[in-house]
Design a protein around this nucleic acid. Structure first.
Lengths: 233, 233
DNA sequence: ATCATCCTATGATCTAGATCAATTCCAATT
DNA sequence: AATTGGAATTGATCTAGATCATAGGATGAT
C-alpha cells in the first residue's frame, strides 16, 4: 500500500534536484513543481513496478534505495542498475507506456510523482530539460557499457570491488553520508544478481576483501578502509 | 585514408532513413539534408574512432557493418554493440565531445557525416528529431539491458543463439537480404568478444549449432535452418 | 522465552568455459 | 604454383565459479 500526502519541500529548494538529473534554472524548477502530482511512500523490499505493467506516473526517488531488474525462467534474476535518491525511476516511459523491467525497493522509499503525458509535453517544450534527458540517457548508456565490460571481461573480485566503489562514489556525489560505517542496503544476493554471480561466491569475494583489510560489508553496514585498492581494479 | 565525394542520394529518398532512427516527415528530412556535410568511405577492419579521441563529426552508417568496443589492460576486448546500415554511430556526441568507446568497421563502410554542433542545434530545434533521439536512446538502453542479462545469467549456447537471432532480425527490419546463405561478417572472435567468451569456445558452440542443424556460420556466410529453435532460447 | 525466517558462513564437490598446443584451411599475395 | 598469414578446428588439460549440503547468527512475530 502506498501513502499520499502533501510534500513539505518545494522543487526549487529540493536537495535532490540540485545534484541530479534535472539540474537547471530556477524557473524550470518552478515549472517542474507545477507538474509534480504529489508523492508516494513505499515500504522496503516491495515491488514498485512489475515488468510489462502499464504505468501512468513517472517516479523520481526522493529518499531511499531501489533497483531495476528482470526475472528469467528458472528463478534467475538479473539486476540492471541500482537507483539512489535523485534518480528518475522510469525515463523509458517518455516513449513507451509499459516498462521493460521491474523495480523493487531496497529500503523504504519516498518518491515524487509526475503525470506521464504532462511530463512528456514538458520535456518537449523545455529545451533545458530535453537536453538533460539526453545527458541522462547518454550517461546511463555509458554506465551500462561499463557494467557489460564487468560481466564480459572481468573477474568476480574486480566486479564486486568496482560495483561497491561505483555506488559509494554516487552516494558522495549526491551528498549522502559515506563515513565509516556507512548505510549500504545491498545484501549478498543483490550484489550477486547484479554481477552475474552466485550469492555464495559473492560472499566469498566479500570475505576476501575483509581479510585483505580493503572493506567490510555486513548486514547493511559498509566500512571502506582502502579505497585506493578498489580504484586500482 | 578516407574518401570524400558527392553523395548521389538525397536524404528525402534515403532507404536507410526510412527504416531507422530519424524516420520522420518530409520537411524534416529536407532540413536534415542541409545539415549533412558529406559522406565518407572507410575500408574494412579499420578503426574509425579511438576511445577518448575528439570527434567533430557525427556519422551515420549508410552502408556496411561496424561495432563499438572498448579495450582493457591485458589485451582484453569487449564489444558493446554492432552497428548496421541506418544506425547512428555516435549519439553520445550530442552531449560529450569525446567518445567513451572505440569504433571499428567490419566491412567497408559508407557513412554520412554531420557537423556535431549543427546537429545538436538541429535536434534542439526540431521536436520530432529530439523525440526520435529519445526513442533511440531508450531502445539502446533496452537492448543494452538485454545483453547484460545474456552475460549475467545465460549460457554460452543461449548467448550465441540470441545474438545471431537479434542481428538477423535487425537485418530484416532494415531490408537487408536474409535468404540462405546470407552475408554475415562476424568472425568467431567478434562473437566471443561481444558475449564474454573465448573465440575457441564460441567456435565450439557454433559447431554444436551446425551439428544440430540449427544454423551454420562460416567465413562470413550464415545459413539459418531452424529459426524457431533460436527463438526458443 | 520460543519459534520461524532470512541472511550469512563454510566445506566438499562438480562443471562450463578458459587456457595451452598443434593442425588444417583458406584467401590473398608473389 | 608456391608462400604467407589470418581464421577455424580439434584435443588435452586446468580453473573460476557453480552447485549441493549444512549450520550459525540476527531479527521479528507469537
Amino acid at each position: 500500500m502506498t501513502v499520499m500526502s502533501a510534500l513539505p519541500i518545494s522543487c526549487a529548494q529540493c536537495p535532490r534536484l540540485k545534484t541530479a538529473f534535472y539540474r537547471s534554472e530556477h524557473e524550470t524548477l518552478v515549472a517542474m513543481e507545477q507538474l509534480r502530482s504529489g508523492h508516494r511512500h513505499f515500504p522496503a523490499k516491495r515491488t514498485i513496478y512489475r515488468e510489462g505493467e502499464i504505468a501512468s506516473e513517472m517516479l523520481m526517488i526522493f529518499d531511499g534505495w531501489a533497483f531495476r531488474y528482470k526475472l528469467l525462467p528458472g528463478g534467475r534474476r538479473q539486476i540492471l542498475s541500482f537507483l539512489l535518491p535523485g534518480d528518475p525511476i522510469c525515463l523509458p516511459l517518455l516513449t513507451v507506456d509499459r516498462l521493460p523491467f521491474s523495480v523493487q525497493s531496497l529500503t523504504s522509499i519516498t518518491a515524487c510523482t509526475f503525470d506521464r503525458s504532462c511530463f512528456a509535453n514538458f520535456v518537449a517544450e523545455h529545451r533545458q530539460i530535453a537536453f538533460q534527458a539526453d545527458v541522462s540517457c547518454v550517461s546511463a548508456q555509458t554506465s551500462a557499457d561499463e557494467r557489460l565490460i564487468d560481466l564480459g571481461r572481468r573477474s568476480a573480485y574486480e566486479r564486486v570491488g568496482r560495483l561497491i566503489l561505483e555506488l559509494v562514489t554516487r552516494m558522495e556525489a549526491k551528498g549522502l553520508p559515506t563515513s565509516n560505517p556507512m548505510f549500504f542496503p545491498l545484501g549478498q544476493t543483490h550484489i550477486a544478481d547484479a554481477l552475474g554471480l552466485t550469492s555464495i561466491h559473492a560472499g566469498r569475494v566479500l570475505r576476501r576483501f575483509r581479510r585483505e583489510g580493503v572493506l567490510s560489508l555486513h548486514r547493511g553496514r559498509l566500512e571502506l578502509f582502502d579505497r585506493a585498492a578498489l580504484r586500482r581494479l
